[in-house]
């Protein structure tokens, strides 16, 4: 079942003065439970594409339909709400809240959703245990390694029970051991919980794990391979 439908997508920067086509007519669908990586050289449009998929950026033309909702037609406020309920984000630089513990970081988004304290604490603990950080619940980000912080970020992304997770170069700042560890966790979540992951990456190790590899060049999909 398609969870995301991308139709005739264009993103042109400086449209009036000096147009730069970052996305140049992408048509692609993503199915529930897929483990997809988007690859391509720097400047190919991967990050722009991911930003548009996540409702963070507006396309110049075309539509992104997530679970039958055309997100580029939503107001800013509704889009924020939609992101909170439907999309999990994992960023390259972890982006945890430094003044919160690992547990509070994971709980935060559930609190934004209005979940009760008991419910969110229980789920946050469950997720942190799942990513192997059951013993670091009370640690603040500054007390965690890069790999551990990224695992907290994955737990946070999963906390709101999103329809899919967008991860922009999630392993770029990690050493090989942490990368391997993180990918194992994501793979496991994908296989056992059917969590849908969409990555943008340069990392061959991520590409090797992926079940689908989409290559973008000059804002166009040049290959779409399912393993």
């Amino acid at each position: 079942m398609n969870i995301i439908e991308v139709r005739d997508l264009y993103k042109i920067y400086n449209e009036k003065l000096l147009p730069v086509n970052a996305i140049n007519g992408i048509n692609v669908n993503f199915e529930t439970g897929e483990f997809t990586t988007i690859v391509g050289p720097s400047g190919s449009g991967k990050t722009t594409f991911l930003n548009i998929l996540g409702g963070l950026d507006e396309p110049s033309r075309g539509d992104v339909i997530i679970d039958k909702v055309c997100i580029n037609q939503l107001s800013e406020s509704k889009k924020t709400d939609f992101r909170m309920k439907n999309i999990g984000f994992v960023f390259q630089s972890y982006n945890l809240i430094p003044v919160f513990t690992a547990l509070e970081n994971v709980e935060f988004i559930m609190q934004l959703q209005g979940q009760s304290k008991t419910e969110r604490t229980s789920r946050a603990k469950e997720l942190l245990i799942a990513v192997g950080l059951g013993d670091r619940l009370s640690s603040r980000p500054s007390e965690l390694s890069g790999g551990q912080q990224q695992r907290v970020a994955v737990a946070r992304a999963l906390a709101s029970r999103p329809k899919f997770i967008l991860a922009d170069e999630p392993t770029a700042n990690l050493d090989s051991k942490s990368t391997e560890n993180l990918l194992d966790i994501m793979e496991k979540l994908n296989e056992e919980e059917h969590v849908t992951f969409i990555f943008s990456t340069h990392d061959q190790r991520v590409v090797n794990k992926a079940k689908r590899v989409i290559t973008i060049e000059d804002g166009r999909v040049v290959s779409d391979v399912r393993k």
Binding site: G54, L56, E76, S77, T80, D81, R83, M84, K85, F89, F91, S93, N95, I97, P98, I109, L112, Q113, R156, S160
Partner: peptide
């Protein structure tokens, strides 16, 4: 800036 952007990205509304 980076953190505020992240908060809004993950769903924290502007009012909050």
């Amino acid at each position: 800036v980076h953190e505020i952007g992240m908060l809004m990205a993950i769903g924290m509304k502007r009012l909050k």
